[in-house]
Design a protein around this nucleic acid. Sequence first.
DNA 1: CTGAAAGCGCTTACAG
DNA 2: CTGAAAGCGCTTACAG
Lengths: 343, 343
Amino acid sequence: MVKIQDVAKDSGCSISTVSRVLNNPDLVTPDTRERVLKSIEKLGYYPNEKAKSLSSKKQNVSLGLLIPDITTFYFGELYRGISRTAKNSGIDLILRDLDDEGPLQEQILDGMVSLKKHGVSGIIISSRVMTEEYDEVLNRLRIPIVLALSEHKKLKFSSFKTDDIKASFDAISYLVSRGHKHIGMVTSSPTEDKLVGEPRYQGFKNAIDFYRLPFKAKHVAVGNNFRYEGGYSAMTQLLETRETFPFSAVFCATDEMAFGAMRSLHDHNLKVPDDVSIIGFDNLSISNMITPKLTTVSQSFEKIGVESVNHLIKILEEPKMQMETGVFYMPHQIVERESVRTI
Amino acid sequence: MVKIQDVAKDSGCSISTVSRVLNNPDLVTPDTRERVLKSIEKLGYYPNEKAKSLSSKKQNVSLGLLIPDITTFYFGELYRGISRTAKNSGIDLILRDLDDEGPLQEQILDGMVSLKKHGVSGIIISSRVMTEEYDEVLNRLRIPIVLALSEHKKLKFSSFKTDDIKASFDAISYLVSRGHKHIGMVTSSPTEDKLVGEPRYQGFKNAIDFYRLPFKAKHVAVGNNFRYEGGYSAMTQLLETRETFPFSAVFCATDEMAFGAMRSLHDHNLKVPDDVSIIGFDNLSISNMITPKLTTVSQSFEKIGVESVNHLIKILEEPKMQMETGVFYMPHQIVERESVRTI
DNA sequence: CTGAAAGCGCTTACAG
DNA sequence: CTGAAAGCGCTTACAG
């Protein structure tokens, strides 16, 4: 590693001067500046960021991002919003992902502590990671936290997400507007999963009640997870009720569940949307690449990322002023494509 | 920020001792150890990693990962392999992604320099980022580099990837084994893109020649990119040749192109695989969720990530021993599903 | 077993 | 305009 001392020696000046040509070139004679620059080039010198941020008053800000599963389909969009915004503000981003191997809880703690040790000024925590169990650690960390796609029961942290209840309600409204009266739902953990299962079921139920549509418990089919497999098995269950519940449309709690649900329909020789209409939730980029193109509720993943960072920056800028925490809903939107037909 | 000095004061001992209970607990009396630990807990002290790695002899190793586009569908798998392997070796991973906004070349340089400044001991560069233009900078960086899913013309760096030529050949062999004789290709830049376009076309052409299948230039349809749109437009072009070229199967250079190609077929009232068989390349997780499930060439993304890190670690462990650079091919595999029929 | 001191690679007042 | 010196928060021989 070539260091500032080497450059100083090579260019025949002090390290103070080398430091200046790097950080305050104006304070240095063009002549010596040239010499130093030449040495830097010649030696291939790169200032050590760690030493820099240790010694410098104006510590360069960095942000941590903690995510549960890097292979999540929408992760890229969320990340892009976060990364772009951070970059534009000259903020370093440090990513910590959780591995599905190994104990979840321990990994979350490790991740947050690691971020703290690396000196991040704030942390963005994404989705299904936040529960009250971590309150104590989070308090000890003494570091601003913002939740993306997530929520904290006691509202201790601000969060940026979609209004799942409203969005689900809107999905059903859309189906109703297309003439559907018998509407089922394919989901997972409608009562246990506070983050997605519960609110999306709630929105569905609200709409069913609001439009005075027929409802029985069995109209909501529950898979083991919010993935393809969960959607497949839930739809398969729903299909068994079809004699008494002639549904014409199904609201799926996630796009990926919708893919599984569509496959189950296909395996039962049912056509989408001719026999059964499907509406999803997420608007994954892939949802526009399948046939039929999936009609779905679009979440503003990138915007959620952008706003999370902006909010964090605001908190950092005014540390004294106790920011009001709250849930900030980012806009959602029904994207009409091909999987819902008009009756 | 509470620092070691604060803990020392609170527990009534020197900072040396505090440092010891953190790094060499055995060297400290259980009694004082307790006191220090209590203070640490009470004050919420977290050692400053930057100061630590600055002062410590045994600098903790960190690796940089440079990727062109975080939204790439297979990124998650590649990342998981890298992250998991690094984590298991106690190595820190620093991610730098490129944004499609802004000049590519500049971003690449910035990314590598930034990584260097952060003191990474090695860099993994992923896919379509490497060209000879960067040779000079890379030399100046004086840092080991490994290429994942990529290749360097002059073989200056080791790379881990799929044997695209062989894998493409195998794809065609598979089609031939299913009775197909008229086989087209949907791709992009078969001559300009050295990374994907050229080798996959080469493998296709090799197989066509090997099996003495009919070939004309127009059998290879070229889209603007390797994405859905590129696949759609290429297939649309290919369809125009159908009167004189009654192809029964098409090899798509990427799975995403295959999605586009399948859509084009659908829009022309052609069924997959009844009218036209399709084989893709990548084996994205989504390829198993669409109907028909895509038959494709599986790349070992995760393994490529794992091996890249292992190789880098080996280089770091034996810095003197000039490692032989080379291209290491990770296994590929034909995954039979539903998009190819037997004639 | 514990503490004082030097040092990691920088930045930044403070003199000159 | 430039350099010597102190300091950032740690670790680690070196004494005791």
